[in-house]
Design a protein around this nucleic acid. Structure first.
Lengths: 155, 155
DNA sequence: TGGTATAACATGGTATTTTATGGGAATCAA
DNA sequence: TTGATTCCCATAAAATACCATGTTATACCA
């Protein structure tokens, strides 16, 4: 039994005519070991789908409770957006999930889906959009390296 | 049981047609004692593969989570870049890992891989590139000696 | 100290398992 | 019925585990 549960790597899988996609095997292993489902929702900032374990969303709920007051407008807005949009997905015996039309449309996904690990979360992109996004990120980093320090190098 | 876990030394191993390489025995010992896997990703600055324990990456995930909020742009960009590129590797009963095409290409590795210890991390280079890099580093040090201060001498 | 036996290691090859993915039947809803 | 969703089976490709061998490093003993 492992100690760490990170969504990693970039994996391209096909989306078939029925809207089915294989969830990367690594991701499935994590979900099985944690006995949790995944939850997906439209990214608030990018044309992609965002996913995480249901456990993490639970944590987000707690964080929001603690960070703003119960009746604040911000909290209202965030909870509506995230929880209202989030949907639970379970994979079938062959490891596939069926994404919804709404999610696919938001991410402009048609034939193939790119799973991008984000540690506690992951994202699902169209091939074209991810290509652009990765390029943007690498350009940005070139001019801003200091922000990438590893833990042991921190003061 | 030892006290320290450092990736050291420079070891050259062959890469076969399938992309398999023996992980240096010393490295394997460390991983076994820490019960963790290694994670490899393309160096952001050099034509080489960089590796570390999954534990270290887990720590990084926690640090990022704590230093920025759930919806921050910085967190988004960083996590995509690091975790999206990182891939977990486990060695088989004969001590080998199978590097991916993407990583090998980035490091321009074909027949042999040079493992270079970096303490908590290590790098994997092609023989040609490492030869150049080592030369460059030694030249650089000659003209810039003061930057090599030990921790206790820091302000 | 020198020489030999033993163990560990790297590495080529092969067998087995896992994974992604297409298609079809069963189930359900409108 | 029609259209969609879930479940199950089949298959090819890819990843992984396993076996065998020569070589190097280590331990042991005279």
């Amino acid at each position: 039994m492992r100690k760490t549960y990170l969504f990693l790597d970039t994996i391209i899988n096909k989306v078939d005519a029925k809207g089915r996609v294989s969830l990367p095997a690594d991701y499935r292993t994590i979900l099985k070991e944690l006995s949790t489902d995944i939850v997906c929702y439209r990214s608030l900032t990018s044309p992609c789908i965002e996913g995480c374990t249901e456990d993490l969303l639970e944590k987000l709920a707690t964080d929001i409770e603690n960070s703003t007051d119960f009746f604040s407008e911000t909290q209202d807005d965030l909870t509506n957006l995230i929880f209202g949009d989030a949907k639970r997905f379970t994979f079938d015996s062959t490891g596939r999930i069926m994404l919804t039309e709404k999610l696919l449309k938001h991410a402009e996904i048609t034939n193939s889906a790119v799973f991008v690990g984000k540690g506690r979360k992951f994202q699902i992109w169209s091939e074209e959009n991810w290509e652009k996004e990765e390029k943007r990120l690498r350009e940005k980093i070139k001019s801003n390296r200091p922000s990438l320090k590893m833990p042991e190098e921190k003061p």
